[in-house]
């Protein structure tokens, strides 16, 4: 695993005396201390408090009151919880893999030196620099039914375009489509991986002959599985937390017809619109558990498909 591949902890270093080792160990703790404090203050303690708030009735103002599992029971029977969980899962399940595939395709296309390579890389990267609010607003304009340029163009081509963000059946898919736009980071991570592959192998990544396809699937792809793992884990975690686009486009009710109602929006709404901190904390806890399980599952299966040495499947 790349994550733990630092030099060994108390490695056998022949000619170093114990005093120096102790000094280094002390320095190690000291240097890490601010971060250890930070993790305790901003991650560990809040995490425990979140578990606690999830078991209370807490309306922001006033004191929390212990109610046991009531908030979880309320979640279980809350249609908004299920609807938003469903939307978010669909969003993540489609957006993440499709984004990875497109990013990988773009990285393969980018992985050759031409006069315009720098330009292409820049273009693919630019969307990442756009604030999500600005990006969402621009897409709302582009996709305006009737008057937006996309629909005007599609209608001119004789097609019958959907109403995009205004159509309850199309809105979630449009949101997924929008999420595919900023894929520069993923593309460049893949590209970094491809460029680390030895030259003789990487030339196989040309897309012309069947033989090269064969090499792509059996040689190149396995070599960049670590990047796939990285992009996959980060992608899933981020897509579970999609918020900005959803609230700009769908507000707190996920218009139209709850089609864009995302988990984070429901959580935000519970906390700051209904002042139901207990329920919000319960939702945060559920999200924590789901992400934990998913990440563990991915890392567990990763052993069988992620390659660190390269070679066969």
């Amino acid at each position: 695993m790349p994550i733990t591949s630092a030099p060994p902890e108390a490695a056998v270093l022949p000619r170093r005396n114990r005093k120096a080792q102790r000094g280094e160990a002390r320095a190690g703790v000291l240097f890490a201390l601010p971060w250890i404090i930070g993790m305790t203050l901003f991650v560990a303690i809040p995490l425990v408090v979140t578990f606690y708030i999830a078991q209370t009735k807490f309306q922001i103002i006033g004191a929390p009151k212990w109610v046991g599992m009531q908030n979880y029971e309320a979640l279980w029977s809350d249609p908004a919880f299920w609807k938003s969980a469903q939307n978010t899962l669909i969003f993540a399940a489609i957006s993440v893999p499709v984004k990875l595939i497109i990013a990988l395709g773009l990285a393969l296309l980018l992985n050759r030196a031409t006069a315009l390579s720098g330009f292409y890389r820049t273009v693919f990267y630019l969307p990442f620099l756009m604030p999500a609010v600005a990006g969402s607003v621009v897409f709302m304009l582009l996709l305006t039914p009737n008057a937006g340029p996309v629909n005007i163009a599609l209608e001119a081509m004789g097609l019958n375009p959907p109403d995009w963000l205004l159509d309850p059946k199309a809105a979630l898919w449009t949101l997924i489509l929008l999420s595919l736009w900023p894929l520069g980071v993923e593309t460049l991570v893949f590209l970094g991986g491809l460029q680390n592959i030895p030259k003789d192998v990487s030339e196989a990544a040309d897309l012309d002959s069947p033989k090269r396809w064969h090499k792509l699937v059996w040689i190149t792809l396995p070599l960049i599985t670590p990047m796939v793992l990285f992009n996959l884990v980060i992608g899933i975690i981020y897509s579970f937390q999609v918020f900005t686009q959803a609230i700009v486009i769908g507000g707190t009710t996920g218009t139209p017809a709850e089609a864009t109602l995302m988990y984070m929006v429901v959580l935000y709404r519970a906390a700051f619109r209904y002042f139901n901190m207990g329920l919000a904390a319960a939702m945060a806890t559920v999200l924590f558990v789901v992400v934990l399980i998913l990440t563990l599952l991915i890392f567990k299966t990763a052993r069988s498909w992620v390659h660190y040495e390269g070679g066969e499947t």
Binding site: T4, W35, I36, M39, F42, P46, V49, I237, F288, V291
Partner: peptide, 20 residues
Amino acid sequence: VFGLTVCALLMPTIVTFLPI
């Protein structure tokens, strides 16, 4: 500690947000 850092990295912001 580094393993915990990775856990913190993977932790959704919202999970710790309310108490903070």
